[in-house]
Every structure is written in C-alpha cells, then in structure tokens.
Design a protein around this nucleic acid. Sequence first.
DNA 1: TTGTAGGCGTTATCAT
DNA 2: ATGATAACGCCTACAA
Lengths: 335, 335
Amino acid sequence: MRKRVTIEMIAKDAGVSKMTVSRAINNPEKLKRGTLIRILNSMKKHEYKPRFVARILAGSRSNTFGFIVKSNEDFVIPPFYGECVRAASNWFKKHSYRSMIFNMSDEQSASLFIDYVNSGLIDGLILFEGTHEKSLLKALKSNDIPVVLVGEDPEGTYDFYSVSSNNYNGARMAVEYLIAKGSREICYITGIGTKPSVEERLRAYTDVMCEHNLEAISVPAENTLRGGVKAVEELIEKHPSFDALFCFTDLIAIGALRGLRKRGFDVPKDVRVVGFDNIHISEYVFPSLTTVSQDMTLMGEIAARTLLQIMDETQPNDSEKHVKLPTRLIIRESA
Amino acid sequence: MRKRVTIEMIAKDAGVSKMTVSRAINNPEKLKRGTLIRILNSMKKHEYKPRFVARILAGSRSNTFGFIVKSNEDFVIPPFYGECVRAASNWFKKHSYRSMIFNMSDEQSASLFIDYVNSGLIDGLILFEGTHEKSLLKALKSNDIPVVLVGEDPEGTYDFYSVSSNNYNGARMAVEYLIAKGSREICYITGIGTKPSVEERLRAYTDVMCEHNLEAISVPAENTLRGGVKAVEELIEKHPSFDALFCFTDLIAIGALRGLRKRGFDVPKDVRVVGFDNIHISEYVFPSLTTVSQDMTLMGEIAARTLLQIMDETQPNDSEKHVKLPTRLIIRESA
DNA sequence: TTGTAGGCGTTATCAT
DNA sequence: ATGATAACGCCTACAA
C-alpha cells in the first residue's frame, strides 16, 4: 500500500505552507499565478486527492445529497422512484452536486444512513413516499437536515417541502374513463398503508363510483407483481362479475394482467385494466397498459431544485411549499 | 440546531476520560461493569452518536461495503444486478456489515465514489459487469481496495476474484432447446461491447448452430426494452423468415416480444423467444418468458462471502478465484 | 499574497 | 481498569 499523499507533502514539495495548498484547492483565485501552478503541478505529480472525511471533519460541506428509497420484492429501486431519482440526480449534477441512493429496507441500512447524515456526509435529502416514517422525519427535523418529500407528508406535522402528483384527479380520470368506455362493475385494487397516495386514489375511485350510482368494491394488495396476481384471485373469488380493474400502481396492474390471463379472462375484452404511474415497462407488456402517468422527471427536478433553494439561504426562495403536479391518462391496449 | 454531542461531553458527564468512553463503545469488555453502565446511561441520556467521519479519520474501518452498478435506460438499478445486490447485502447484514450502492452512470458519480473509497469510507467493493473499466480496476488495484467482480474480468490482467454464471453452457442450453422444439431459423439478438458474457453467449449460439448445420444470424442491441424492439425490426427487415429468437437478456427479450406483436407475429406459434437472466418480471409478461436462469441470490452471496474472506486475513481463505455458477433453463410460454 | 496556531471528534499508544 | 498525549488531514481565523 502506497503511503497516503497528504496536503502536507504537497506543501513541502511545492515549497509553501499547507494553507496555501488548501487555498489552491478551495480559493485558487486568491493565489499568485506562479504559486498556484506550482502547487497544481505538484498535486498532479503526486496524484494528490484531498481526503474527503478530513474535509468534512474540518467543517466543509459534502456537496452531496441523498435519496431515500424503499425497496420492494420486485425491485431494489422501484421503477417509479428510479425515474425521479434519475431526474433529480441529473439536476444536481448540472449544479455540480453529487448524490447517492440509500435504500431503506431494514435497520442496518437505516443505521448507515443515520451515520452519514449526522456526520455531515450528506447535505440534504429527498425522501420518497414509503419512507416517511415519523421517527425518521423527526430525527431529520431535529438535526436541521434540509429535506424534500416526494409524495405528501402523511402527518403534515413536520412542515417539510413536498412534491407529489395530484392523485385524486389522476384516479378520477382513470375511473371516469372506464365508465365512459362502458364498464360498470369496476373494482379497485388499492394499496396498503395510510399513505396519502393510497387514500386519495381510493377516495377518488369511491367518489366517482358513487356519483354514477355504481358499487365501489376494493381489495388491498402489496405493491408488487405478485400482489396484483393475488388481488385478482381474491376478486374472482368474491366478485366474479367485474368487468374492469383499476389498480393502485402499474406493478399491481401488470400482476393483475397475469392473474386474469391465468383464469382465462381476456384483457380488454372481458376486463379492462388501468394502472397508475406509467413506468417504462408498462408500454411493453401485453396488452400494453393504459395508465395514469405521473411526470417523474418533473417531480425529480422540482424536488432537487427545491432542495437547493432551501439550502442556499442567500437566494430568494420562490419554491412552493407543496407542489402538486397534474397527471395524464395514457391510453393503450388494456382499456 | 442543537449543539453536537461529542465524546468529550459524555466523558465529562460520566466523570471519566474520553478514552474510557471510546472503550465503552469499542471494547466494552475491558471496562469495569459500573463504569460501563454509567457511560452507557450518559450516552443514552444525551443521545450521543459517535461521529462517523471522525472515527474514520482516526483510523477505524467503516465496516461498509459498496456495490458499483451501471444504470440503463429502463432502470436505475437493473433487476438482474438488483437481485444480486439484495442477496449480497443481506449477507453483509448478517455479518454486521453495511453496504451501499453506487450507480456509476457518469463522471460525477465516479468522483463521489472515488472520494469515498480513498477516504476510507468503503472497506471493499463488489463491481458488476458493465463497470469493469480498465481505469477503474487499475485505480482500485493500486489503492489496495479489496474487490470482487460479478461477471468475469474482461482483461484478467488485474487478477481480481470473480463470480459469474456459466454463460456458454447457459446459452447452449437455450439454443439446443429451440432446435429440439423444431426451430431452424434461429436468430440471436446479442449484446453490445466486449464483455465476456456477450462474447460467450454469442460463441455458444454460433457453435450450436454450426454443429447443426444451421446458419447463425445475429444482430446487436442495447440491453434495454427498446433495444429489443429495434433489433426485431432490423431482423424483420433483413431476415424475415426466422422462427425463433434467442436474446442476450430478458430485457431485450421482453422488448422483442413487443416488437414481434407489433408486426403481427404470434409468440410462440410463429416465433419462439428465449431470454437470459430470469428476472422477476419475466414470469409475468405475456407470453411468460422462457429463459436461462442465473442464480442471482447465490452469486450475490458468494461475492459477499468472498469479499469478507479476502479482507479477513486471519482466516484461511478457501474462496475460489473464479467461481462459475451453473444455469438452468426455465421453460414458460414463449418457447 | 502567504503563514501560524488551533480545532474538528475520534482512536492508538504508552503510561499509570 | 483508566488516563494523557499525540495523531488522523483538513480548514478557519487571525496574523504577517
């Protein structure tokens, strides 16, 4: 193992003090041209890289942001969050910040992430729905970590900035579309938990059905492919006469497609199916999925931009506290 | 912002020196019961958390491992790697290590990761195929970072440990199966680049076709859904009479299914399709995908176990240098 | 424009 | 079993 190259060695080599080398790195404009060049050369020659942890310990910003995402059975980074992350991460990059993903799937990952945060390794965070646990939010708040939520804050008690889609309108569109197409016995495969997205989409479904004097029937499912299959089976058991399914997510919908086929149903002839999210693969499955599209790229960008604004107190902050993005109905083969 | 709780404050509060508190954290067995309890209580009272970066700077291990994964157009963490990561990460967890994912998609992410590694924030790495770039491997080698490759080392020059599937045998199985089923005009949608997996699967395809006096026709595709669609279009253009497709990955195969359907081909009646990887979703698409299964869980576990063995020099190291895992043909609806 | 001294929070080493 | 001191590598504040 080669011995580590430190700032001190560069200083000695370039015939200056450590401080001058430090300036060469952080405020090069404050140095005389000659000195700067000499130092730069020496750094290159010795392949000097400042040691990240030392800078942090001495008080520097990390210029690094984190994403906290919850895995599911099918994906370590579920596609919907993945696209938001990609967009946010590009935004950060454009502004010379770096970013990294923490997948919060267990205690162990949580501990790592907490260590990072309270060590100064992370300057700010974007939390995706599913990770908005009270204890976590509280910890972040009390440590003064800048945070933006993707998805609404379930409690609202911590007053974080948030970016989400208009879940209610999106779900309404989907159900109204199914009704317009002639479906009457529309069942809803809902999500699990008390997340706002779950509650709003369910409420929209119930409202629309009610407005049309149709019976609202919903069953819950894990947000996974398998969850979709199981929900369909439950539905066939309990309400075999449905002629359409609205699903909490595309993942569930794709599972539902499989479940329906297994039982001999044709989509869309026997049963129309609509999902939510418009993840990449929904366009490729058969039948391709009619779905409510969330603009993940825009969500990611807004989340990133908001976070930067929160942190940069010198700039005027024109970010809305709670952004709600419109959704679009994407009509494909399944309904 | 609450003032940071440091080891010094705990020491004062518990009436001992910093060193003793440090011991309470790292070698509790060396303390007298009473002292230990007093310190522990004080730590709890003040919600003391050791500062990660300070420990690292002072010479501690991070007990953290990293995964380096390459994103693609469809997924930030492609499903195949995702499953390996999940398995490896569980293995680490079981041994009280933590892990994190770096997605190497650009310069910016690379810089973060390099900072981490040469700061001591990462004790070892698992690199997935697609990230085995010469410059990276060289840097890791010269910094003495313990590394395990998933997928074979394309160069072989750096002598890293590696875990991969037997790509050649897997691909042979697939092609032989297609022939046994009666297909004769079997085209291969191959991958891009010079990765061993690309070369071996292609070689297997060519060999088998040759052994049966069949013409080998292959077109390259990006490893994405869209790549599959495009390859099918190219194939229909150039060799419209094919009756089977073997695809470099499931992602490509799923794209191919869509491409075929768009052009009115029925799978498997007109064209049989076989993929490679057996990612989760392949079981759910329609027709469900016949594919060559790699045991991602086992790969992940072996990679993790090997890495731990490399690092722990006290233990005898019984890891093979280059593990090659067997594959299985999973027969479903598409062929 | 450049240098000096001190501190960031922890652990290692050597004492006691 | 516990403590004192130095070291890790960098940056801030002040001085020259």
